[in-house]
Design a protein around this nucleic acid. Structure first.
Lengths: 328, 328
DNA sequence: TTGTATGCGTTATCAG
DNA sequence: CTGATAACGCATACAA
């Protein structure tokens, strides 16, 4: 592979001149510029990125931390982030934690090693004080997640409110035996949603039964089957359920319930969260989360921070919206 | 940020000794080793990766080229590749081409710039001669795709055979008015599948109608709706359809057809391809493609090539398998 | 407008 | 076992 010196030699100029041409600096005579360009062409030269990075201390790479790559919510989120970053000249390194806090820490190390310029955390498992120390090495942006301290730049999604919208909707529709399905994963997202469920029911003076709290991990269509099984074994049937795992699980439940001849929503109302394509197809009610917007905003945020744009808005908020369809 | 010299100074040794300790070389007295380790701890030192990369000429990064990130087939594929690469100490850079051959070329440039050690192509849009020139900069592995020349190391998936399995199954089940839905995307995958459809029908002496060739792009549940619309407008109804787009589209079609009161499979048999989770939930027939296996094999293949393992198997094959369920 | 020299942080060679 | 030194490829301060 040819380097800057080879070009310099061939074009009869100094390495610095080659560098100037490559980086489009002014003050290069058109004659030499021409010669350099010709030499570059002849030797099929491209600058070595590792050298540039060592020299500049920048990588133009951003790491995206997510629990799962192949996932109804994180899939489109990654896509949105990646697209925006790409438009701004950044590449993306994928870090799948599988909800393992050790892995999260491991990937955070990349910031320290200057392997990436910044971290986009779409998941946050570790305690704030363990993450904090990495901030000295580069910016960290929270995307759709949040830490209770909220000291990080964040695209803030109020999951408590999102869940509350769903529950309030069920209550308004007249349901009064409301069940709740959710993942047991320990994070603020699920905790907020659960709290919203508890609070809303209490405020409405509705019965709260332990058996109506269904814990099934993951947001995945097949998980809907498990929820159905659990549901159908219950001594007293609820008349509605909010599936906080997400629309995949909710959609699975709709399909499975119908397969078993249950009438949705008369026998059981179902509402999910995210507004994924499948919920539209099934005409399932859900609470929309503007995933593209979240990803795009978070990506812009980290770029702004890295490029020290004046206009940095360290905290952006994004809103849930009820999408009422046929299953409630 | 501290560097190797700082450590050397603090530990009263030479930079080379520090390097030896960091890289676990033998021949370092335990006394000095101890001192170095202490200094590293004290200064919170980590080696600068860009420097290592410049020096070594390796990056330990592999680029994954895919058309879409958020996709029923490519999602799990990325996951499998990423997981395997990660186990072997490689990171992954995501390159979404959106089926744009320009972008494909653009990303291929990363190989030339030594930004990545190798490329995993899960999509191939450019002509072979345009891709070939990049081979001098690093290995390229085809994953689930293929070029007619087949000169690249490949995890070979016989899409002709995969489609043939589906069609033959329909024929065996006694259907004789078989329609075909597929994406218009121009690539070998879809062309092979279509050819299989045509060949199988001809061989079985079954009628072949132009209107039964339905072209709808993408593999996405909502696309199932469009297929249904087109299907229901047909002057003469087929009694079965193979949805070559994939299981998402096929599942969408199943749901939509049932929503409109069609009986599947009596009125219309439906078979998809991929065996994605939703097809299990819907009890939909499909042809299984071992996505995990494809990803894992491809990842191992590129690692073997990069690490010059003797046992490199430049061409691995992987097989489709009929999964007969309730929709055929 | 151009060239020289230096340093970015590492590792490897070689001499001791 | 250890240390000095060169080299990886580039960008830039400075000199001309």
């Amino acid at each position: 592979m040819s380097n800057i010196k080879d070009i310099a030699k061939l074009a009869n100029v100094s390495p610095s001149t080659v560098s100037r041409v490559v980086n489009n600096h002014p003050y290069v005579s058109s004659v030499k510029k021409e010669a350099v360009l010709k030499a570059i062409e002849a030797l099929n030269y491209t600058p070595n990125i590792s050298a540039i990075r060592l020299k500049s201390g920048k990588t133009n790479i951003i790491a995206i931390l997510i629990p799962y790559i192949d996932h109804g919510y994180f899939g489109p989120l990654i896509k949105a982030i990646n697209e925006t970053l790409s438009q701004h000249g950044y590449m993306t390194i994928l870090c799948e934690t599988e909800n393992d806090s050790e892995k999260e820490l491991y990937y955070l190390e990349m910031l320290r090693q200057k392997q990436v310029d910044g971290m986009m955390m779409c998941t946050l498992l570790n305690k704030w004080q363990d993450v904090e120390s990495f901030l000295q090495y580069g910016p960290i942006v929270l995307c759709g997640e949040y830490s209770e301290e909220r000291v990080l730049p964040t695209v803030y999604v109020d999951h408590y409110e999102g869940a509350a919208i769903a529950i309030r909707h069920l209550i308004e529709q007249g349901y009064n035996k409301i069940a709740y399905a959710s993942s047991r994963e320990k994070n603020l997202v699920y905790e907020s949603r659960k709290q919203a469920y508890l609070d809303c029911l209490q405020k409405a003076n509705l019965p709260l039964k332990d058996e109506w709290l269904i814990h099934i991990n993951q947001d995945h269509v097949l998980v809907g089957k498990d929820i159905f099984t659990l549901l159908s074994k219950l001594p007293e049937q609820p008349d509605a359920i909010f599936v906080a795992n997400g629309d995949q699980a909710a959609a699975g439940l709709v399909i499975e319930a119908q397969k078993h001849g249950w009438h949705v929503p008369d026998q059981l109302a179902i509402i999910g969260i995210d507004n994924q394509p499948i919920s539209e197809l099934l005409e399932m009610s859900t609470v929309e989360q503007p995933i593209d917007q979240i990803g795009t905003k978070a990506a812009k945020l980290i770029v702004d921070i890295l490029e020290e744009n004046q206009s940095v808005q360290p905290n952006e908020q994004v809103y849930f919206k009820l999408v009422s369809r046929q299953t409630t």
